[in-house]
Amino acid sequence: MKEDQPPSHFPDLLALQEFPSVSSPSSLCHSDDRLYVSINKPFKPFPLSRSVYGGHFLAQSLHAASLSIAQSFPGLFVVAHSLHANFLARSSSESPFLYVVSTVQTGNRFLVRLVRVYQYPAEQFDLAQIASASPLFIATISFKTPEPSAQLFFSQSSIPSTSLPDEWHHIPPRPPILASPSKAIPHPDADHPGILAWAADNNYRPHKHAIDVRRVPMTTNPDAFSHRRSFHYYKAISHFVSRPSEDPNLHLCAHAYVSDRNSLFVSADLIGKRNSLAFAASLSHSIVFYPPPIAPAAAADEDWCVMETSTSRSGDGRLSYNGRLYDARGFMIAEFMQDGLAIFSSNL
């Protein structure tokens, strides 16, 4: 890996190097698969974390699948419309990741790719050894050609602004989107009392994140857990070279990246169990992306976008995390749902 610390420029964070084509099929990959190796170090939510930030895999898998299509079909314009992923094993930030992209379907309107992620020691790269291991993450990602404008029909749900304090009622669909970004609170990577106390005691300062995420302070929330909402603003801290019209999938990677931010910590807070969450781990994550009815597509590096999150169920050691992403105009960018493992302490 090139850097000791994760890069703060988001495209650099996702950077991949293509591995030479495999001449003969193996248990790991087929001859028509494309292989990519991560170049830079990913984020860990905090030093005590057992794994890399899950949103990194969501974004880098989408990036790998997008690259594979661009390289196989130069000039073909397709945009990601869904991603369904499973987190299978722990990962380390100290070793590179191998992304194996396989073709599931290539049709006239839809292209589906399966992405499997493996990890290997930084000092060696042995396909035979990697082939004997199990993937730590898998994702099925679907891309779609744009619809003719004459066929477009648009409707969407709006953010339930009644959940917000009065001073935040400009969140879409009530423009302008922002009162002031400075009113929002920079959100830690792991918003948990025990972790925050450890960080304070050890004078730990996290690395600068490639995506700035800020939490809207909530003064009131409905009594019913299912009606409670959490709101965040987010934006890349540096501009991308390409615009959404040129590389929409890179910008969608940024939205996918944010969709896992704090996830189960937020859900635990919404059900009043923030202090008693003893262990949490993502199990699965699904995203559906939506093109805007009016160009241009949402730029993740230019305007503050909004993430609205909630939880719909907890029990049996599991906790849900649901969300919607909106651009600065109030158009819905994506919806997502995560299922996670959550263990609560009975003493808190």
Rank of each mutant, 00 (worst) to 15 (best):
L136E: 03
P135E: 06
E167W: 08
R174Y: 14
I138P: 01
F125R: 11
Q124A: 11
W168L: 08
F143I: 02
S149Y: 08
Q119R: 04
S149C: 11
W168T: 00
Q156I: 03
S132A: 13
L114K: 15
L136G: 07
E147L: 15
P175T: 10
S149T: 09
H170K: 06
R174E: 15
W168A: 10
I171K: 03
I177V: 09
F154I: 00
L136N: 01
P146W: 12
Q151M: 06
T145Q: 14
P173V: 02
P181C: 03
S158P: 01
I130W: 04
I159S: 00
D126E: 14
F125E: 10
S180G: 10
S155F: 15
F154K: 01
E167G: 02
P160S: 06
L114W: 04
A184L: 03
K183H: 12
S163W: 01
S180C: 06
E147C: 05
P173M: 04
P148K: 07
T140K: 15
S142L: 09
V115N: 06
I171E: 09
Q119N: 02
T162Q: 13
Q129H: 11
Q119G: 01
V117R: 01
L111Q: 14
F153K: 10
P135F: 06
A179P: 03
V117N: 00
L164C: 08
Q151N: 12
I159P: 01
P175A: 08
R113F: 05
F154T: 07
V117A: 03
P175H: 13
V115G: 02
F137Q: 04
S180D: 12
E147F: 13
E123Y: 07
S134A: 08
I171M: 15
P165W: 04
P160K: 03
P176M: 11
F153I: 07
F154H: 14
Q151L: 12
H170L: 07
R113C: 07
P148Q: 11
Y120C: 05
L111P: 01
